[in-house]
Simulated scan of single mutants.
Amino acid sequence: MQLIQINKARYRRHLNIVIVACIVALLAGALGISQTLIALFPDASGSHFHWNLLGVVISAVTIGFLLNKYRHHDFMLEVVYVWELKQALNKVTRKMLKLKAAAKQGNIDALLAMQYSYAGSRLLWQLDDNTIVMDDLALAQAELDRLAAHYNVNLNVEDYNETLLKQF
């Protein structure tokens, strides 16, 4: 997955709309379905937990289906991109201990994966206004730059491919 610059204002606006729409749909769907089921199949004991649970499950599955169906719509472009980027970065993060050890040994693929992780994290944190840990990221990037210079490696995030992680 390549790193691209996206419009922060458009991303935030669309993400907020998607979140609010999902919350409203979950509330309305769960209540509507469960109340309909309770009216159709009343329980003499007064416990309707199973109908309420079924309403929530049906609503959640429907919302998931709709989000997946419309993921390629232009409105969802930035939201889906950030979601997929977070998944890609999570794959790198899970292997970070092995990557750091290999990077100290001069493994070019490890250095490249770490560069991708740092660049992607910087992009995400700027989009989400999460600048608290930027200083830590700058220190990690400086260490990575030092290792790259030591091993005379030019790191370009465009060269990163997820298949590089299989060796770690």
Rank of each mutant, 00 (worst) to 15 (best):
G29H: 13
Y118I: 06
Y81I: 00
E84Q: 09
S34R: 07
N16E: 03
L112K: 08
V92I: 13
I17N: 06
Y160V: 02
D43M: 11
S47K: 08
T62E: 05
T131M: 07
K95E: 04
A60E: 03
M76Q: 11
L139S: 07
D136H: 03
K69A: 03
T131V: 12
A119Y: 11
L127Y: 12
Y81L: 01
W125Y: 15
P42D: 15
A28F: 12
T93N: 14
F41D: 00
Q141A: 13
G64Q: 02
T62W: 07
K8R: 15
V157P: 09
Q141M: 11
K166V: 03
N154T: 11
M134P: 14
K91L: 11
D74S: 06
S121P: 13
L97Q: 15
I4Y: 15
H73N: 09
H48P: 04
K95V: 12
Q141T: 14
K69H: 10
Y116H: 14
R13Y: 15
N161C: 07
A30P: 08
E162L: 05
N16S: 09
Y116G: 06
T93A: 15
V82S: 07
A30V: 13
L139Y: 13
H48C: 00
I33C: 08
F41H: 07
S34I: 07
L15F: 14
V157D: 09
G106M: 12
A140G: 10
L40R: 01
L40F: 12
R10Y: 10
A138W: 10
H50A: 07
R10H: 09
V82G: 00
N90T: 13
G46S: 00
A110E: 02
W51G: 00
V18N: 07
H50Y: 05
N152R: 06
A103P: 05
T62A: 11
I132T: 04
I6A: 12
L27V: 12
V80P: 00
V20W: 14
A142K: 14
V80I: 08
C22F: 05
I33K: 10
I132S: 08
K166E: 04
Q35L: 14
A140I: 14
